[in-house]
């Protein structure tokens, strides 16, 4: 059996100011899994994703990625850090933080250039990703002239240009219109079929339903309260209510007959 892509073994983490966020948290993510991280606001989803991406480091316990222990000391080595970030891509919730150059083309080329790829290879990758995501007409634009959906596409493109094995997305659908959300679902499903490991944090249960085959749920006191199949988690109204993700009126507008406990305004 494959080694887990990520393995957290009784890890604790806390920001310098304030209470520890996680205590004795353990979980494994296997290659090719599509995992959704659910939890109410402030439950620690983004922090957990940043730990997995090697941007934050655990205080105690062990965090292993691709079978190797990941610590601040390990990623202080520039070559190790580059090798790690080449394999694990991270799409931030706010695309503004990810788009820091003044031209879309340069933005997408930033990652491949940092990894030391040759200019020809960088050009090929950037142009292919631009075409794949249908944003080649934006390549000379400045990020501040893009709409929210376009910014998200560029942010995703800037990570895909690294061709990571693992794709981590923090609230990927937030602020997107239904059409762009649909595009994102299609893209993530395709990447999943092509063997990429996908981890995403989201409040959008429809998105989770469409993409994830496994769900992790964090409670408001930062405990991992569920780790199992996505379909079971999404049908467990009591569980979702207990972690304050939904209220008693929650229902899905999927196919088939459904009843309301309130009337649509």
């Amino acid at each position: 059996m494959d080694k887990p892509v990520f393995e957290l073994n009784r890890v604790s983490f806390g920001y310098q100011t304030g209470e520890p966020l996680f205590r004795d948290l353990s979980l494994k993510v296997r290659r090719g899994e599509k995992v959704a991280l659910l939890g109410a606001n402030g439950s620690g989803k983004s922090t957990l994703l940043k730990i997995l991406c090697g941007l934050l480091f655990v205080k105690s316990g062990e965090f292993k990625a691709f079978g190797q222990s990941i610590t601040e000391g390990v990623l202080e080595n520039d070559e190790q850090a580059k090798a790690y970030h080449r394999r694990v891509g991270f799409v931030f919730q706010n695309p503004e933080v990810q788009l820091f150059t003044t031209r879309v083309w340069d933005e997408i080329a930033f990652g491949p250039l940092q990894l030391g790829l040759g200019m020809k290879e960088v050009e090929t990758r950037v142009n292919d990703v631009l075409q794949m995501l249908g944003i080649d007409h934006l390549q000379d634009r400045s990020p501040y002239r893009l709409s929210g959906g376009e910014k998200k596409r560029v942010a995703v493109a800037s990570v895909l240009a690294l061709n990571p094995e693992v794709l981590i997305l923090d609230e990927p659908a937030s602020g997107l219109d239904p059409k762009t959300q649909r595009w994102l679902v299609g893209l993530l499903q395709e990447l999943g079929r092509r063997g990429r490991t996908i981890l995403l944090a989201s409040h959008n249960l429809d998105l989770v339903h469409a993409i994830a085959d496994r769900v992790l749920i964090l409670s408001e006191d930062h405990q991992l309260v569920y780790d199992g199949p996505a379909t079971e988690a999404l049908e467990d109204r009591e569980l979702l209510m207990a972690v304050n993700l939904v209220d008693e009126f929650y229902h899905s507008h999927g196919e088939g007959i459904h009843s309301h406990r309130y009337t649509h305004g």
Binding site: L55, D78, H85, R86, G89, Q98, F100, F110, Q114
Partner: peptide, 14 residues
């Protein structure tokens, strides 16, 4: 956040 986003794409200071 910008710095973290740069790190996540392989930026190591150069």
């Amino acid at each position: 956040e910008v710095y973290l986003a740069m790190q996540a794409r392989g930026y190591t200071g150069q």
